[in-house]
C-alpha cells in the first residue's frame, strides 16, 4: 500500500567550494491522501531542501544523490524534466514564503494565475482570466475582478500570499507544499491564511506538506509532525502524541521554547549551542554537542530513526520507551 507521497532514503547535497553540504541526509517519510503533515525545524535543518527535492527544483551546485520520491506510486526522480513540468503546478504545487519576491513584479496577479492555467489546461484566453478571477475570489480576495489586474506591489502582504495560494491551487493539485507561508505576515493574517488553507484542503481533498518553524501552527493545522535537525528527521509522530510524549531531546527543547498560554511566569528556555555545520557534521548523533543527555555512545554512534511506540519514531539513543519511562505522570 502506498500513500500520496512516499519519500525513501532521500539524500540531497550541495557541492560548494567550501565542501559538500549534506542538506538532506537519508530521510524517509510518508504522506497519506488528504493528510496535513507538518515539518518543523530551525533554519538550515533541511526542510526547504526536502520540499524543493520533491518538486525536483534543486539547482546546481545541489544534487539529489539517492532515494526515491514516489508520488501517487510513481518515482519523480525517474521523470524527465518535461514530464516534471506537466506535474508541477498541476498535481504537485508549492507556495513559497516571501510573497513579494515570489511574484513577478512586472505581471498582474491575474496574468500570473492565467499563465499557470495556460500551461496545464486547454481553457481559452478569456476563460483563463475568468478562472483566475474565480480563484482570487475563492482565496478570499475582495473585488477579485479589480484585483486581478493589479500588480503584486499594489496588494497587501496578506493579499499577495492569498494570490500566491490561488496560483498554486489553480489546477487542483493533489499535494500542496507550503514553505513557511505566513512568516512575512502578522498573526491575525496568519490565522486567516491557515483557515483558508484548511478550507481549501477540505474542498479539494489535497494533501498538505507544511514547512514551518512554529510548533503552535502545526498543532492547530496538522495531524502528523516530522521534526528535522541538521538534515535528518529526528522524530515523527501524531501531533497529540508528540506534544504529550516528545521523545527526542531536541523536540523537548523546541516545545519548551514555546510560550505557554496560561501561567506564563516561567522563563522560556532556549536550546543552548548552534545548529552544526552541515559540511563538517559531528560524529555520532548530530544533536549530541547540544544535548544535555548525551553520553559516550551518542558522541560516537549515530542513532537510527526507529519506531518507539506505534506511529511514533525517534532517532535517539536516550529516547525512553514507555515501559521503562521513569518519572511518568499518569
Amino acid at each position: 500500500m502506498s500513500g500520496l507521497l512516499d519519500v525513501e532514503g532521500l539524500v540531497t547535497r550541495f557541492y560548494t567550494e567550501e565542501g559538500v553540504v549534506k542538506a538532506v541526509d537519508g530521510n524517509s517519510f510518508r504522506l497519506e491522501e488528504d493528510e496535513a503533515l507538518g515539518v518543523v525545524g530551525e533554519s538550515g535543518s533541511g526542510k526547504t531542501v526536502t520540499a524543493l527535492s520533491i518538486m525536483r527544483l534543486i539547482e546546481a551546485p545541489g544534487r539529489i544523490e539517492a532515494g526515491r520520491i514516489l508520488f501517487r506510486g510513481e518515482d519523480l526522480l525517474k521523470k524527465s524534466e518535461r514530464e516534471m513540468r506537466r506535474i508541477r503546478g498541476k498535481d504537485l504545487s508549492m507556495v513559497f514564503q516571501d510573497s513579494l519576491s515570489s511574484l513577478n513584479p512586472t505581471l498582474t496577479v491575474g496574468a500570473q494565475i492565467a499563465r499557470v492555467l495556460k500551461h496545464h489546461t486547454r481553457l481559452s484566453r478569456r476563460a483563463r482570466w475568468r478562472r483566475a478571477v474565480e480563484l482570487l475570489a475563492a482565496v478570499g480576495i475582495p473585488e477579485p475582478a479589480k484585483r486581478a489586474s493589479h500588480y503584486p506591489h499594489q496588494l497587501s502582504g496578506g493579499m499577495r500570499q492569498r494570490a500566491l495560494i490561488a496560483m498554486a491551487i489553480s489546477c487542483n493539485p493533489k499535494l500542496l507544499i507550503l514553505d513557511e507561508p505566513t512568516t512575512a505576515l502578522d498573526v491575525t493574517i496568519e490565522a486567516q491564511i491557515f483557515e483558508l488553507i484548511g478550507e481549501l484542503k477540505e474542498e479539494f481533498g489535497m494533501g498538505v506538506f507544511l514547512i514551518t518553524h512554529d510548533l503552535s501552527v502545526v498543532a492547530s493545522f496538522c495531524s502528523r509532525v516530522i521534526i528535522m535537525y541538521a538534515g535528518k528527521i529526528v522524530e515523527e509522530a501524531g501531533v497529540h502524541e508528540l506534544y504529550a510524549h516528545p521523545l527526542h531531546p531536541y523536540t523537548r527543547g523546541l516545545l519548551r521554547s514555546i510560550p505557554p498560554l496560561e501561567g506564563g511566569e516561567a522563563r522560556l528556555q532556549s536550546i543552548p549551542g548552534e545548529v552544526p555545520d552541515l559540511i563538517n557534521l559531528p560524529p555520532g548523533c548530530n544533536f549530541s554537542p547540544r544535548c544535555a543527555l548525551a553520553d559516550e555512545r551518542c558522541w560516537q554512534v549515530e542513532p537510527e530513526l526507529s519506531g518507539i511506540t506505534p506511529g511514533h519514531r525517534a532517532a535517539c539513543w536516550r529516547a525512553e520507551r514507555p515501559a521503562m519511562a521513569g518519572g511518568g505522570h499518569d
Binding site: 527544483l57 516534471m84 513540468r85 511574484l103 513577478n104 499557470v116 500551461h119
Partner: peptide, 29 residues
C-alpha cells in the same frame, strides 16, 4: 536568481515563457 523565477518553475511554466516574461522582461528594466 529571483524567487519569482523559482515560483514560475514550480508552477510548471515552460522555460521559453519563463525566459521571456520572467527573466528578460525584468532584466530590461
Amino acid at each position: 536568481s529571483q524567487d519569482f523565477v523559482r515560483t514560475a518553475r514550480a508552477m510548471g511554466i515552460a522555460p521559453a515563457d519563463i525566459v521571456r516574461r520572467d527573466i528578460v522582461k525584468n532584466a530590461l528594466i
